[in-house]
Amino acid sequence: MVIDKIKKVNKAEKSVKNEKASDMLIGKWVKCDKCKEILYKEDVHKNFSVCPNCGKHFRLSARRRIKQIADEGTFEEIGADILTKNPLNFDGYMKKITSLKEKTKIEEAVKCGTCEINGEKVVLAVMDGNFMMGSMGSAVGERITLAIETSIEKRLPLIIFCVSGGARMQEGIVSLMQMAKTSSALAKHNEAGLLYISVLTDPTTGGVTASFASLGDIILAEPDALIGFAGPRVIEQTIKQKLPDGFQRSEFLLEHGFIDKIVERKDMKDTLYNLLKLHSLK
C-alpha cells in the first residue's frame, strides 16, 4: 500500500515540475530540504510526512505524531493544565510564549496522555519541535514527570517521542533541574519493573539527550535524526575543525552502541506494538 502511495506521489512530483511557480505560493507544495524535490503537500502527509523521493523524515507536530501512533479516539491528555512559568522573570519571555501560542495553537513543547496502540494501553508523551524548538523548561519537565508517574500508578508501559534543542535557556537553572527531576522519576519507573521505550527524532540534543531520552529500556530512532549532547556547531568551535558527514546521526549512534534500532516512520506503530506485546504479562 505504501509503495502504491509512493508511486502515486512520484507521478505527482513529475507533473509538479511543469506547474507554475505561483502554486508554490498558495502553499500546496513543499520542497524537500534534503533532495530538493518539489512535493505535493497532501501526498507528503499521506506518506507519514516522509519525502516520497529520498525518504527524508520531516519534522512532525505532536498532534500529527499522536495521530500516527495512537488508535483513533483513544488519546486522553494529561497535564494539559501545566503551563509555562517564568521563574527567573526573564524579560520578554512570556511575551514570546504568548505570541508563539497564538501562532502555533499549541500550549507547550510536549503533549502527554494515555492511549492505545492497536489496543495496547500505554502512557505516551510526544514532544513538539514547533514550540520553542522543543526545549525543556518547567512545564515540559513537569508534564513528562507527571506522565512517568501516571505510568507507574497505572502500571502501564511508557513511550516518549523526543525532539528537542535541549534545556530551555529562559528558565535558567529551573530548566536544568528538570533533567534531574525526570531522571529521578525514571529511576522510580525502573524500580517498578515497567517498560520505557524512548524514540529519538530529529533533532534530540542537549539536556533532553542527557536525561530521559537516553534512559529507555529500549531506544529507537528515526533514520538520519541528529542526536547528541553538544550541538555540532559547539563541537566544531571546540575542536576547530569540521565534523565528518553523518556525525551524530541515528546511524552513527547505532554503530556506537547508543540506540537499539532505527525504525522508519511507516513501521513505527507496528514496531511499538510488537515490543509492547513482547512485554505484556498476559
Binding site: A210, G228, F229, A230, I239, F247, Q248, G257
Partner: peptide, 13 residues
C-alpha cells in the same frame, strides 16, 4: 561536560 568528538562517540548524554 566536554563537547568533543570522542565524548559524543562514547555517549556523553
Amino acid at each position: 561536560a566536554y563537547p568533543g568528538m570522542g565524548a559524543e562517540e562514547r555517549g556523553q548524554g
